[in-house]
Design a protein around this nucleic acid. Structure first.
Lengths: 210, 210
DNA sequence: TTATAATGTGAGCCATTACTCAGATAACAA
DNA sequence: TTGTTATCTGAGTAATGGCTCACATTATAA
């Protein structure tokens, strides 16, 4: 599925104007991805939109894929920042607070740049870029770590599985809700938060009835 | 995000050999999508892999997008077929059986052609093709419909929301599990089924503890 | 000031792509 | 058989894409 293009490094911007150039290029990339679609993403067009020459682009990025990768790494690092900022709050906290906190964080991370997040997610899977896999693995580990501290209070005993189910459920529901945002039947965030909390708490704390 | 290419119709195959041609083209498309990646999907390559000339391809498909669309429609109709086949089993059945049945169906639908399903899903979102949205809307409606017949036994009262949460949770978890299939830490299907059933039943039948 | 490094430019190369068309071949119908 | 319609062919076209390179401009440091 993947063509892992070799990543020849390019020099980093040293002067201020160079940094501005790189910034403009990345912004243009994001803009095109979000507003024009992947298929319109060409290096020539990026340079045009960024207002720099195609040559400048190739001084900082070895190839087209590197553009998307840079954007993705940036985005993921923002998300991981948020996540780890709240991570400390989770450990030792009572279940309900921890779950509340987790759901909020996921909602927040998705609000950083919803449309971009969406597009990057698709691209990441498509290009098999590992940055996103890292994000998910990290999220799973954090959740699993927390669950282990509460092992005795929790119904599921395969905590890796539980973390898998929880992380991906929450992620997907939030993701879908964001896509629906412009929709007539858009889902209010507070209701979503409430519902996800219910889903998680019941899964973790209730024996299966019947 | 989307370039909705106009869809000029092309003539349908009438003779048997023409049908074989169309079949070969679609199979080649699927093969390339799955084994070589979207970026390698060109009409010339499809024709080459299918062993027909590029001219033949354009006699039955107006453009490249139509190839993916045809494939997607085919796939979705197979999935909907499975779903509606089991739909009757759901109505009137006790909760646990219905949930079991639903989880199985989703697992089955994903097993029709897992890798293709994955790729098509990405493409569908990317191209904004509605076939997939239809699938999800249909799935949500079916689930919501069932929930309504059980309204009194069920904890959540916003059934549209409940259906939304359930469908997308199950879908996402199954989807992820399939992607992980080749992985060392692949997830056994029976455990997945069990866990998803627990997730759903607790969500639907248990009051939030605490 | 002047040498050197950093940055910027864009014409243009070469490969690839989507797609057309004029003509060959095969099935069918009378 | 013969005219007609369906099917197939693949060289060719126009456009676009990724990317390089030889050179121009600007900043920095001696």
């Amino acid at each position: 599925m993947t063509t892992t293009t070799p990543r020849k490094p390019r020099k980093a911007p040293r002067q201020a104007r160079a940094k501005a150039t790189v910034e403009a290029i990345l912004e243009a990339t994001a803009h095109i991805l979000v507003d024009e679609g992947v298929e319109r993403l060409s290096t020539n067009r990026v340079a045009q939109v960024a207002g720099v020459s195609i040559g400048s682009l190739y001084q900082y990025f070895p190839n087209k894929e590197a553009l998307v990768l840079a954007l993705l790494e940036r985005h993921v690092s923002k998300m991981l920042g948020l996540l780890s900022k709240h991570a400390t709050e989770l450990i030792g906290a009572p279940m309900e607070d921890a779950v509340t906190s987790y759901v909020r964080v996921v909602l927040e991370t998705h609000q950083i740049a919803p449309r971009l997040h969406h597009v990057l997610t698709l691209q990441a899977i498509d290009l098999d870029l590992s940055a996103l896999a890292d994000w998910e693995a990290q999220a799973r580990k954090m959740v699993q770590g927390y669950l282990e501290t509460r092992r005795d209070d929790i119904v599921p005993d395969d905590l890796e599985m539980a973390a898998f189910v929880l992380v991906h459920s929450v992620e997907a529901v939030v993701h879908r809700a964001i896509i629906k945002e412009d929709d007539v039947a858009a889902i209010p965030w507070d209701r979503l938060e409430k519902e996800l909390k219910a889903l998680i708490l019941r899964y973790l704390l209730s024996e299966t009835p019947g």
